[in-house]
């Protein structure tokens, strides 16, 4: 009961930070929006043609939107690591540690706040894709399923980034460690089909966690074949969440060094 109450208090604190300083939230969506515009309008015509069946810019917009959504998630993960690392340098967190509050409420508040921030970013980026002409061919039930699977994956990635924020000795390092996550949609099926890639890269692209999730979103939004993608995506999401949570908890419970 206390854990819930205290986590809710910490969540309120983090939401207040976001409302008061919205620049970080804006930065999260900046990069994916630039990529969206770049890939649709600069490369989209050519890449769309490469998808086969006389595809064009509009087809490529549909193809790339799930990848852009995941890029938003990765971008938000970087922000989470930075926020957590910054907060750990603040005296107030030392104060929290000396208070009789539920221990996990501090990282939990961060994770819940960042999840809301991420999903808000995803909503804005998806909205822009819709404005550019993206249309889902499925229905509300599939959208709900897409949101659910995406939320699970965001939960996992946010706990993982919180742990990365905790393990980083400085804020600068915290902003660099999650960088590779931003590229995972590119080295997966986010921007081009994996079967167009050469050997080792193709193997990596097919087996990294972002690809099954991108394929799942494609299936749930555009009606492409699902295969076992949803199962694999859920397994990745749950696995990353568990590892991230346990790691973050362990890091937060050790003696602070800063």
């Amino acid at each position: 009961m206390n854990a819930l109450h205290d986590s809710a208090t910490m969540l309120r604190r983090n939401l207040r930070h976001m409302l008061r300083y919205p620049t970080l939230t804006l930065m999260i969506i900046g990069m994916p929006i630039i990529f969206l515009l770049l890939f649709v309008y600069v490369f989209g015509g050519t890449l769309g043609a490469g998808l086969g069946q006389a595809g064009g810019r509009a087809d490529y917009l549909a193809y790339v939107t799930p990848g852009i959504i995941l890029m938003t998630v990765a971008s938000a993960a970087t922000a989470t690591a930075v926020t957590v690392a910054t907060d750990m340098t603040e005296g107030i967190v030392a104060r929290f540690r000396t208070m009789a509050i539920a221990r996990a409420s501090v990282p939990t508040g961060h994770v819940l706040g960042s999840m809301l921030q991420t999903l808000l970013g995803v909503a804005v980026v998806t909205g822009i894709a819709v404005l550019l002409g993206f249309r889902s061919t499925t229905g509300p039930l599939q959208w709900l399923a897409a949101l659910g699977i995406l939320a699970l994956f965001v939960l996992g990635l946010t706990w993982l980034s919180a742990a990365l924020g905790l393990v980083s000795p400085t804020v600068e390092i915290a902003s660099n460690i999650p960088m590779p996550l931003m590229f995972l949609p590119l080295f997966g099926s986010g921007f081009v089909p994996t079967d167009s890639m050469p050997g080792a890269l193709r193997w990596f692209a097919e087996h990294q966690p972002f690809t099954p999730l991108i394929e799942t979103l494609r299936s749930l939004l555009l009606g492409t074949p699902m295969g076992d993608n949803a199962t694999v995506a859920v397994a990745w999401g749950a696995g990353i969440a568990l590892v991230g949570y346990l790691w973050a908890r362990k890091l937060y419970n050790r003696d602070p060094v800063r």
């Binding site: 205290d6 208090t9 207040r16 005296g91 104060r95 000396t98 009789a100």
Partner: peptide
């Protein structure tokens, strides 16, 4: 922890919150 209070060498206040919000945060906790 329930019996003690700590005021450290470096101010343990939340700079992004107002003075009143800081106190209300403590009250909530």
């Amino acid at each position: 922890r329930a019996a003690i209070g700590v005021t450290g060498q470096y101010s343990a206040v939340d700079g992004l919150l107002t003075g009143e919000e800081n106190l209300r945060l403590m009250a909530d906790l």
